[in-house]
């Protein structure tokens, strides 16, 4: 809601934006820091939007990179091949990703737990393989020489909008409907919540913002390739969300910032970087499974996961 706390945060973040912009304009902040800030912003958009699906609605999706790639490719095609303006291209990417969310969401949403996870992983990979086989977007070598249109200002305000939209959803009757699906799907439906509709909403909105992050990425790093959007990327986003705390936007933002910083910092130790990263992952899960600021205990997923609507029980081994 629009209360005091909200305005305090808004003012603080605008001040932060202003200071950074001032430093950039004055050339006091070198490219490395700007890169890191933009990357953090993009990762926040990815994580916060995946959190709507996984954290709030309790659906287990690990195909976020697929939606991201749609935003990246579609918006890059728009600026590169059709000379559209940046905002229009971004929006086109978002809408395309959201449509993909709809198309993927409808048939898969009867699946639950692990089964949904695998299906989304499969869809993510299929999307990547489609790019790989599309000559129009450069096949395996991808698209090159995309204009660098993303900057700190775009990133900052789009992060802000993403967080606002997600929070506005979550803190409304629609968000409560989503959370009720996570908490107890059968009870939610018995209380008149159209469970399928809200799962689709979560997927569509989540995909929309994943597309936005994709568009920003494409226009910051000049180049996009199918391999950048494989299931490893989806895992990475999932890790931000789980380490931050499923169902807690604040936790997810914080977790994403810390992990992105850590990752950037570890770049100085290329050989050890991924090893340290993996160890941190494992140790956090063992010693702090609820994430940094875990919202809900995620226990529900233990009980429910593994069986789809008419899923298999494991009758023989």
């Amino acid at each position: 809601m629009f209360n005091k706390k909200f305005f305090l945060y808004l003012v603080l973040s605008l001040v932060f934006y202003g200071v950074v912009q001032f430093l950039i304009t004055g050339m006091w902040l070198n490219d490395f820091y700007v890169d890191t800030l933009v990357l953090i912003g993009i990762n926040i958009i990815l994580a916060v939007s995946l959190n709507l699906i996984n954290g709030f609605t309790g659906q287990f999706s690990i195909g976020h990179a697929g939606f991201m790639s749609i935003g990246a490719y579609v918006s890059a095609i728009m600026t590169y091949n059709f000379q559209m303006s940046f905002p229009v291209a971004l929006l086109a990417g978002c809408v395309a990703a959201a449509l993909a969310g709809l198309v993927i969401g409808l048939p898969t949403l009867r699946l639950k737990g692990d089964y949904l996870a695998i299906a989304t992983l499969g869809f993510g990979e299929i999307i990547r393989i489609v790019w790989l086989n599309t000559e129009y977007v450069g096949g395996a070598s991808g698209m090159n020489g995309i204009d660098k249109l993303t900057n700190w200002t775009w990133t900052f305000f789009l992060v802000l909008i993403t967080i606002l939209v997600i929070q506005n959803i979550v803190k409304s009757t629609h968000g409560r409907a989503m959370i009720s699906v996570r908490e107890n799907e059968i009870a939610a439906e018995a209380m008149g919540v159209n469970v399928t509709k809200y799962k689709v909403y979560a997927f569509v909105v989540g995909a929309f913002f994943a597309g936005l992050a994709g568009g920003l990425t494409a226009h910051y790093f000049y180049i996009i390739q199918p391999t950048s959007f494989n299931f490893m990327k989806s895992f990475e986003i999932l890790v931000f969300v789980v380490l931050g705390g499923l169902g807690s936007t604040g936790g997810v933002v914080l977790g994403t910032i810390l992990l992105t910083l850590l990752f950037t910092y570890l770049q100085e130790y290329p050989e050890l970087r991924m090893i340290i990263y993996s160890l941190i992952l494992i140790f956090t899960m063992i010693f702090r499974p609820q994430g940094l600021l875990g919202g809900f205990s995620a226990k529900k997923m233990v009980k429910k996961g593994g069986s789809s609507q008419d899923g298999s029980s494991t009758t023989s081994a």
């Binding site: 996984n54 287990f60 737990g113 692990d114 996870a117 999932l238 890790v239 789980v242 499923l246 992952l281 494992i282 899960m285 063992i286 499974p289 205990s297 995620a298 226990k299 529900k300 997923m301 233990v302 996961g305 593994g306």
Partner: peptide, 10 residues
């Protein structure tokens, strides 16, 4: 006994 997603991430 921990959440599925936690073990999966591990």
């Amino acid at each position: 006994g921990a959440a599925r997603i936690v073990i999966l991430i591990t």
